[in-house]
């Protein structure tokens, strides 16, 4: 998000006034989507040492990912889609875990669709601002493309330097497009909680064998799919 300079503020206020005067504002409401990454049945905490059932340790240092293209469906038909819908979720920045979407007040839906990752068109469209600014560290510099998800930490299972695991999952160009489409059934509500329990990911991913991913490809797609299927409505 960019900060408003005084001049921008003046302009902004003027525009607001104008729109207030002249648009017979269609009545809108705000839907709040709360993203809740979890581990071992409670909110995932960075830096906390978790013990697995085999007495191994897992400690998370980074969990950041893009959720994009939010849309709402009713009876399999799209009834609303958010424009310019790109949200960088960062567990270390509390406020990024809440997404607010303005929708028509009358909106009824039975499913939410979104993507885990950034679409390929945006990946080839040059420099972007806000959540898509490369300044956020979610863009590969040696080879163009957004990092859709970063998951980093330390585990006694990893036979690596400092026992680190580091998953940087990306890739936008076919056949290595790692963006995952997620569909969640839900009831119409102004407040939705989407959980991401990561336990199953670490059951399916053997950290002794796979503990680093830095390039696009089949393995990256596989890892992305393993995470995407874990999203669920609370």
């Amino acid at each position: 998000m960019f900060a408003l300079t005084p001049m921008r503020k003046t302009l902004f206020t003027l525009l607001l006034l104008l729109t207030g005067f002249f648009s017979r504002a269609q009545s809108e409401k705000e839907i709040t989507i709360s993203i809740q990454p979890k581990f071992q049945n409670s909110a995932l905490e960075l830096g906390k040492k978790y013990f697995t059932s085999t007495s191994d340790t897992i400690q998370f240092e980074t969990l950041r990912f893009y959720l994009s293209s939010f849309s709402f469906y009713k009876n399999e038909k799209q009834v609303f889609s958010e424009t310019n819908s790109y949200h960088l979720i960062d567990v270390s920045a509390e406020k990024t875990l809440t997404i607010k979407i303005k929708v028509p007040a009358s909106l009824q839906f039975d499913a939410i669709h979104f993507n885990l990752g950034v679409d390929s068109t945006t990946n080839v469209s040059g420099a972007m601002g806000g959540d898509l600014d490369p300044i956020n560290g979610m863009y590969w510099t040696w080879q163009s493309g957004y990092i859709n998800l970063k998951l980093e930490g330390i585990s006694s299972l990893c036979n690596t330097r400092n026992h680190e695991f580091q998953f940087h999952i990306g890739g936008y160009a076919a056949p290595n497009n790692s963006v995952q489409h997620v569909i969640l059934k839900t009831q119409s509500s102004d407040s939705i909680i989407i959980e991401l329990p990561l336990d199953i990911f670490f059951i399916e991913t053997d950290l002794e064998k796979i503990n680093s991913m830095m390039i696009p490809g089949n393995e990256a797609i596989e890892l992305a799919a393993r995470i995407a299927k874990l999203f669920r409505i609370k």
């Binding site: 960019f2 300079t5 040059g126 420099a127 600014d133 490369p134």
Partner: peptide
């Protein structure tokens, strides 16, 4: 850019 808040986008676009 009409904005003194410098961003990565602005740096890259001006270099372009």
């Amino acid at each position: 850019f009409g904005d003194s808040t410098i961003t990565g986008e602005f740096v890259l676009k001006s270099l372009s």
